[in-house]
Design a protein around this nucleic acid. Sequence first.
DNA 1: CTGAATGCAAAGACTTTGCATCAGC
DNA 2: GCTGATGCAAAGTCTTTGCATTCAG
Lengths: 134, 134
Amino acid sequence: MQNSIRLTSARKAILDLLQSTHKHLTAQEVHKQLKDRLPSLNLSTVYRSLEYLVDHQLISVSDMGVGSPVYATLGDQPHHHLVCQNCHQIFDLDSGFVDDLFSKIEDRYQAKVVTNHLVLFVICENCRSKNRRN
Amino acid sequence: MQNSIRLTSARKAILDLLQSTHKHLTAQEVHKQLKDRLPSLNLSTVYRSLEYLVDHQLISVSDMGVGSPVYATLGDQPHHHLVCQNCHQIFDLDSGFVDDLFSKIEDRYQAKVVTNHLVLFVICENCRSKNRRN
DNA sequence: CTGAATGCAAAGACTTTGCATCAGC
DNA sequence: GCTGATGCAAAGTCTTTGCATTCAG
């Protein structure tokens, strides 16, 4: 991890994309979405660039249970989701709750929490009432 | 999702394994560890069985950032980890902190949190002191 | 100018699927 | 006995790597 950042067109494009979509994208998705702008962009370059950008702390990587890791800019406000394991509906989770947890952890462990997108699996109210077992 | 469970030798062996190791294993690891006991066990059967067991809520699946999902029995006490994004060291996270969060969430959203293995990414104390930027 | 980044092609790892056979209930 | 599970083989998807070329600083 070094301080200066070598800014190539591929990396620039990836950063731009992540900054403008405000979404979590997989490497494959990033590649697909840049095909028009940079037709020559190779998938392996996308993988290498994403790795580089994560290493240099310009983007974050997290796992939403999609199978592949997803990437997003750090600029986005930390935000968190509840995902119902039964009906797969997604709910926003009040980040106050999570901030609380994170600051407690940082106090206790002297570690900086870098997860800025937490996903918790739940059985939502709706599904609970439909299913006695939960 | 149905109520009765068809208990085959493959599924029995997988459950046994997960119950005895108390670890989170990937499909590949499960397969490797069962090779001796069940030499004929096919990898695709392992995948299908794990999926089946998750569907029937006999085991849980989570993601530790290893690249593949990991499986564990539900019997294991909920427990949580901090993983350093820099040195990849793993720390146990006091589950009191997390229980707190979960019960607040359950109150507010009337949803049952089923995540029983939370993984938070951090920069650990050690790595922070080595690197001014964090 | 020089080392690092890229494209390309190939290999590698993990996972899924179709189909014939086998086994649990 | 019937339905669903398994083994096998093959294909599919995602990711990584080696090497020659190109590019940013």
